[in-house]
Structures are given as structure tokens and as C-alpha cells.
């Protein structure tokens, strides 16, 4: 591990925090608890893998901490600020600047090239053309896709698409990247490569990663493992570093 990783690891800052987070869905008029009084804290530079079976509440939890959904009760704090009182516009601004998202199905815009997909969040921020393009080129180089910058998503493999999605999530320099089943649509080798990349970026950019997955193989990339079951989080595994190469 380099200087950055030692520096980032567990700085103690409560970058992302969930307090008594509860989400109840109504199914046929009956309340169903997707999450129940969840407590969660992730400091800057952390790499948390949340593991759990289907229907355990992983994606619901991710949606809440990604501020794309609102809890039934409880609170999500981003950089110490409560989010429940923020407007839709303020939450969109948070997602634009502070949170990067990586999806299971990549969710790239099919009519845009790899470079344009990565460029899109910068367009939202109103960045100048010249530095914007330079930043996109650098980010694509970082994820190893410089040669494929002009290709549309349909002309990329699953692993390449997920790399584009990761580049898109990181391009604005967010403090938090949330990934929902990032390896689910990839074969094990490609999935491993994607996780290697995310772990490397975590180290190099000091970005907090929260990855939810049902894939046990992803856990080995975690600095911290958390298990989710029936809407409750349980700390699992050690809090130590795991070699990104392992």
C-alpha cells in the first residue's frame, strides 16, 4: 500500500452515516420492513462491502444512502449534514458532486460514446470544454479505456462498460462511490478485474467505496465487511486491509 492508502485508511471522519434508518414498504396494505433501525458509518477512504442474499435489503439501503430514495424514518448524513430536510434539487446536487453511483447493469447512455458518458456529469456541472475533455481523457486512461473512448456502449464488453461506469462515477471527484452489484453481470475474471480497479481507485483517490453484493468473492476486496439480513446490518469480518491484488 502507498502513502495515500495509509493516509486514507480510517481517518475517522464520519463521511457517510446512517442513523436508525428504517424503510417500510406496503404490500397489500401490510407493512413490510425492508430496513429496520440500521446504523452505519463510513469514514473517508473506507472500502465497505455489504453482503447479503437477495431480498435482504441491500439495494434499499444503497438507494437510501445514495439519497435517491427517502427513508420511512431515520436519517442519512453526508459529511455530517442530514439529508431528510434537503430538497430534491439539493439532493441532486449532492449526487452530482459528492456521490458517485455504479450500477449492476452499467446504465450507460446508449447514444453516447464511452468518453461522452464519462463527460456527462461534468456537463451537468458546467465545466469548461477544454479542461473537461482533458479530465475525461485522463480518467479513461486511468481505467484503461483510452483506446475505446469513441466507442458506444453497445460496442464494449461488459467489463469495459463497467469501467466506463466507474469512470463516470469518479469523474467529478466524489468523496463517496456507491456500487450496486457491480460484478453481477460479469464473469468472475472480469468481475475480479473491475473490483481490482475499484480498490485501486479507492487507494489512489482516497474515495470511500460502499459496494453491495450477493457475491461472496467480492468480500475479499473489502477493508470492512458488513452483512445485511432481513433488513438489519451486522458488522462482519475484520476491519483490516485486504490486499487489492488478492
Amino acid at each position: 500500500m502507498g502513502e495515500a492508502s495509509r493516509f486514507c485508511h480510517f481517518r475517522g471522519e464520519r463521511l457517510l452515516e446512517a442513523s436508525r434508518l428504517t424503510k417500510i414498504y406496503r404490500v397489500g396494505g401490510e407493512p413490510v420492513y425492508a430496513l429496520r433501525d440500521v446504523e452505519f458509518v463510513a469514514p473517508q477512504g473506507d472500502f465497505v462491502v455489504i453482503n447479503g442474499p437477495s431480498g435482504s435489503g441491500k439495494t434499499t439501503f444503497l438507494n437510501l444512502i445514495a439519497v435517491i430514495d427517502r427513508p420511512t424514518s431515520g436519517e442519512v448524513y453526508i459529511e455530517g449534514e442530514p439529508t431528510s430536510t434537503q430538497s430534491e434539487g439539493q439532493l441532486a446536487a449532492l449526487r452530482k458532486t459528492t456521490i458517485g453511483l455504479v450500477f449492476q447493469s452499467f446504465n450507460l447512455i446508449p447514444v453516447l460514446s464511452a468518453a461522452e458518458n464519462v463527460e456527462y456529469p461534468l456537463l451537468l456541472q458546467g465545466s469548461e470544454r477544454s479542461p473537461r475533455r482533458a479530465r475525461v481523457a485522463a480518467m479513461l486512461a486511468e481505467v484503461g479505456l483510452s483506446e475505446l473512448a469513441r466507442r458506444r456502449p453497445s460496442a464494449l464488453s461488459g467489463g469495459q462498460r463497467q469501467r466506463v461506469a466507474i469512470a463516470r462515477a469518479l469523474i467529478t471527484g466524489p468523496k463517496i462511490v456507491l456500487a450496486d452489484e457491480p460484478t453481477a453481470n460479469l464473469d468472475s475474471e472480469t468481475g475480479g478485474a473491475v473490483m481490482d480497479l475499484m480498490r485501486r481507485l479507492n487507494e489512489e483517490h482516497c474515495v470511500t467505496f460502499v459496494v453491495v453484493t450477493h457475491d461472496p468473492a467480492v468480500s475479499k476486496y473489502a477493508k470492512r465487511r458488513v452483512r445485511i439480513l432481513d433488513g438489519r446490518l451486522e458488522e462482519g469480518g475484520d476491519h483490516g486491509m485486504v490486499d487489492s491484488a488478492s
Binding site: A92, T97, F103, I109, L124
Partner: peptide
Amino acid sequence: TREIGTLRAIGTTRAQ
């Protein structure tokens, strides 16, 4: 619809 969700999730406002 899904694409709209993605756009919104990565920070696009309703107005945008």
C-alpha cells in the same frame, strides 16, 4: 424510464 432514472441518479435535476 430507466435511463431517466440513471440521469437523475447521477445528479441531473428535474428541470434538466
